[in-house]
């Protein structure tokens, strides 16, 4: 199925990107940020579970893509493949010019450190660190010196409107504020890609819109490739391109 369909997917995505995409994409328009070729992911256990089935997909640089689907359909697994968090059982995943499907752990860590930013549903902040220090953790693996690290983290927090909460630990912040810190942490290293796994799933409606607005603004301003996994159709509708995944198979919406 997927070769022809993914071609169509890409074409549709490219068009959408031209109309509403960011002014300064991280990679030149028309290039592929991601190319997935026949990607299959299986989890071994008492019963082998196939989370992704022979998925082929292209995502253009600077595109905002929403991935929807039922629970257990393979959304998070696809996001993990895109985020170099896991390797496919078979097939290839290309991020830019790199094939990340067979890289050793250390190089995968390097790809994650430099090129990919993550935003999680549960925020995943370090509870004992302040907002500022949480943001700094993203610069630690890049070897950014302390003073520059602190300056960039402060700027990132200011960009999400939390300059005055820099010294607060997550427990002292609201859900929306924590997610802002998580977004600052994802963006402080200026990645090519921002992957968001249900970024508004734990937020009320008002905060959801606020966070979505923030993400959209950052996407536009920075030319990011933004991939959002969501159950929420209201979130998905704001994306340039919508993919649906069910039983490990991706289709265009």
């Amino acid at each position: 199925m997927t070769a022809v369909e993914t071609g169509a997917v890409h074409a549709a995505g490219a068009e959408a990107s031209t109309e509403t995409g960011p002014a300064t994409p991280a990679r030149p328009k028309g290039t592929h940020m991601y190319v997935l070729e026949n990607v299959t992911k299986q989890y071994a256990g008492k019963r082998t579970v196939t989370a992704l089935k022979d998925v082929s997909l292209e995502i253009a640089a600077g595109q905002m893509v929403a991935i929807q689907g039922p629970t257990g359909g393979g959304k998070s697994t696809l996001l993990q493949m895109l985020g170099a968090l896991d390797r496919p059982t078979s097939g290839r995943v290309r991020l830019g010019e790199s094939d990340i499907s067979h890289l050793p752990d250390a190089k995968l860590a390097r790809v994650r450190a430099k090129e990919v930013g993550f935003v999680f549903q549960g925020f995943n902040l370090i509870p004992t660190l302040t907002a500022q220090e949480n943001v700094e953790t993203a610069l630690e693996p890049l070897g950014v010196p302390g003073p520059e690290r602190r300056r960039r983290a402060a700027e990132a927090l200011a960009a999400v409107g939390l300059a005055d909460r820099a010294t607060h630990v997550p427990g002292e912040l609201s859900g929306g504020q924590q997610q802002r810190v998580a977004i600052a942490r994802a963006l402080v290293k200026e990645p090519d890609v921002l992957l968001a796994d249900e970024p508004t799933g734990a937020l009320d409606e008002e905060t959801r819109d606020e966070i979505l607005g923030l993400l959209e603004g950052l996407w536009r301003d920075r030319g990011l490739t933004l991939v959002i996994v969501t159950h929420d159709s209201a979130v998905a509708r704001r994306a340039e391109r919508r993919l649906h995944i069910k039983h490990g198979t991706v289709t265009e919406r």
Partner: peptide, 16 residues
């Protein structure tokens, strides 16, 4: 677990 998973996700190496 989630804390370390998150740190690994944002690029921290095992050794670190």
């Amino acid at each position: 677990t989630r804390e370390f998973g998150t740190l690994k996700a944002i690029g921290w190496r095992n050794g670190r």
